[in-house]
Simulated assay, not measured.
Amino acid sequence: MSQPNFKQAIEKIDRANAQDPNIETYQGEDFPKELLYAKRMTETLLSFAPNASEELQIAARAQHIERWKISRDSYPMDRVGYLKWREELKNMHAETTATILKEVGYSDEFSDRVSFLIKKKLLKKDEETQTLEDVVCLVFLQYYFEDFAEKHSDEKIIDILQKTWGKMSEEGQQAALKLPLKDKSLSLIKQALA
């Protein structure tokens, strides 16, 4: 059995995400949406937790692998439908990633750990699951929050911010307060924390 290949695993995850038909324009350049998200996850993880394990680095990169394959509107547009959709996505992301990890020589044990992280098991109890959740929240706040906030009422945004904040560790919260956000966003965060 050859040595597991981290670089190959990342390349395969990126190749899968490069198939995303949804395009996001960032700094004047077009990117497949989930490929851009995956790179932001890695960048944020390595800045927030520079000593992240290989398992955590792969889980962060594959967090949304092929997310477009299960669309939100294939589930009822209510809270229950939303949660069921999220659960299906997590399972699909974990399975797709496990297949890639086997192809590049990782053990079942390693692959199971990555799946555990992608499924966000033992949040608040498992340090790496918590780090991954912090990074998800930081990426959302830094890159997606402002567009999202424009489409919803301040009341709804404050509720979402309070839920997001509740999922984060103290380190994650401190990092969030240092993000380069617009005044309006910072003001909504302050209202949510008041």
Rank of each mutant, 00 (worst) to 15 (best):
Q3I: 08
Q3T: 13
K7A: 07
A9M: 02
A9Y: 03
R15N: 10
R15G: 07
A18N: 14
T25V: 15
Q27V: 06
Q27M: 10
G28K: 12
D30G: 05
F31W: 15
L35F: 10
Y37A: 01
Y37F: 09
R40L: 12
M41F: 11
M41C: 03
T42P: 04
T42Q: 12
L46Y: 10
I58M: 00
H64L: 09
R67F: 04
W68V: 05
W68G: 03
I70C: 00
I70F: 02
I70A: 00
S74C: 02
Y75G: 01
M77E: 10
K84N: 12
T97V: 13
L101W: 11
V104I: 13
G105A: 10
Y106K: 07
S107Q: 08
F110P: 07
V114L: 07
K120A: 10
K121P: 01
E127Q: 13
T129F: 07
L132N: 03
D134Q: 05
V136D: 08
L138S: 05
Q142G: 02
Y143W: 11
Y143L: 04
Y143I: 03
E146C: 05
D147M: 08
E150N: 12
K156V: 04
D159Y: 13
K163F: 15
K163Y: 13
M168E: 14
Q174G: 04
A175M: 11
A176Y: 05
K182D: 11
K190I: 12
